[in-house]
Every structure is written in structure tokens, then in C-alpha cells.
Amino acid sequence: MAELTMVEAINLALREEMQRDERVVLLGEDVGVDGGIFRVTKDLIEEFGEARVMDTPLAESGILGFAIGMAMRGMIPVPELQFSGFAYEGFHQLESHASRMRWRSQGGLSVPMTVRMPYGAGVRALEHHSESREVFYAHMPGLKIVVPSGPRNARSLLLAAIRDPDPVVFFEPKASYRAFREEVPDDEEIAEIGKAVTVREGGDITIVAYGAMLPRTIEAAEALAKDSVSAEVIDLLTISPLDWPTVTASVRKTGRCVVVHEAPLSYGPGAEIVARVMEDSFLSLEAPVGRVAGPDVHVPYFAREQRYLPDCARILGVCKSVLDY
């Protein structure tokens, strides 16, 4: 067991997969000599060489299109995009090709790649470095969207993503990169993509969250406990395909549900979750489902980014109105 940060845990997962399978290759801007601007790929070029840890030219379309080609020809690429805010230069490669190749070729070709990108606010960065746009990808059939919340599940989910036969977009909550350490087992631990985890059991209200919102959600659940409200907290871990059985079972038990995400409110992941809860658990609901989200604005520059981000108080506010309904 080692106590690792999320950055270290992802680095461990990459190393493990590269040791296990020679077809696993990393590519991206500054991933090699520099070890990645967040140090996620630190020392990997020393261990695996520049053929497998490729510093690419500065071109996201290049990185993704090239990776798709490599994947179709039998490699397992793990491209890194430096920030999710710079994925748009290569977005069309995901929408037009990665997500459709299996379908278009009627099963003849597949794209087993894992696109890693840090997302989210809270690190005092410049514009374009703070957004949370996972729905853009979740809206594409054929992609799987994974968002770890801590070091341990980041490692186990990344192993699963790299071994997945389909393209996975792996969103790394950069605010959690070094925020805390966690024990990560020495032995290989593989998560199942598409499985949510109930991180806290409770009977009064279900709170669904993921990624960097997890710590704040737990904080809110703890505050509710002091008021004798027992909240069940579900960490989604995969946004698409989402683990509906876990959410449904919990909401049918508690009768109340709140969804938390930092993405903007309108058309955010919460919209899908609320609709589905309504469809699946309508008769069990004691109150409308609440949504805690960012407002429908661009993330303000960093002096005010915390005002944008949902915090414990905002989560509690929505939980209260759902509980008091």
C-alpha cells in the first residue's frame, strides 16, 4: 500500500499498463521530456523510451486523429490533452470518427484508446483551463465517459479504461490532482466502467455527484448528519454509460434526490439524471429532484471561480429545499 495523490496514482496506472502491454503508448504535448505539465507522465519516457511516450507537435486534432489511426492498426494509444479546454481543436476526430468507427465499419474496426484530459475549476488558472464540459462527450454515442474522484479509483478506472475495447474519455478533476492522498493497493485493482459506487449509505436523501464535486458533497452529507439527516452519496465514476440501477435503487429507497455537478445547469448531466429518476422512480419521489450546478455562464477568471463552483453551502441549500418540500 502506498499513499498516493491522484497524479501519482494515474502515473502508476499508466506505468502498469505500459509494462503489461507493449501496445500501450502515450502521446501528447509535453508528456515526454517534461513529464506532462501536471507531472502525470513523470519519468515514463525514461522507462519506456520516446517511441512509447511521444512528445507530439502542438496539435490536438493531430494527437487524436493520429491516435485513432494507431488504435485501428493495433496499438492502444493513451493520448493526453493538456486541458479539456483545448480539446476542441480535435473535437471532430472524436465526434466524426472515434465514436463511430465500430459502427461505420460494422464491427470491422475499433478504436480502443483512452483520451485523458484534466477538467474543472479551482486551480487559479487562466481562461479555458477551468471548464467542465463532459456532456459534450456524453452526448456522443459510442464513447464512454469516466470521471474518477480520488487517487484509488483513478488508478483502478484508468486500468479499466485502457483495457476497454471502445474509446474512453477520461476526465481528470484537476482540483483533486494533489488535494489529498489515498491508500492505493500494490496489487492490481481494476474497476468496472459503468458502475457507480455508494460511498456513504443513508435513508433520507440520495445525493449523486462525481469528480471534483465529491469532497464537497461528502462535506455536505456530514453536515446533514449533524442535523440527523442521513444522506446516501453516490459517486457516479462513469457518466456514460451511467449506472442507472444503482441510482434508481437508492432513490426508490430514500424518495429524494439531489444531483451535484460543476458543469453549467442547463443541459448539464443533471438534466439527464433528473429526467431518468423521474421516469424510473416517479412513484417513489417525495419531492422534485434538485440540481446543484454552475450557472449558465463562462467560468469567471480565477479571482471569482469559487463563486461559480458549487460548495457545501449550495449543496446544503438544495438538499434542504428537497427535504422540506
Binding site: 445547469l265 443533471g270 434538485g290 440540481r291 446543484v292 450546478a293 454552475g294 450557472p295 449558465d296 463563486r307 458549487p310 453551502a313 449550495r314 441549500g317 438544495v318 429545499s321
Partner: peptide, 9 residues
């Protein structure tokens, strides 16, 4: 939000 609430609800 000016009232300390969440944007949605």
C-alpha cells in the same frame, strides 16, 4: 445566486 441560492431549482 445573489440570495445565496443555487442557480437552479
Amino acid at each position: 445566486m445573489e440570495q445565496g441560492q443555487n442557480p437552479g431549482g
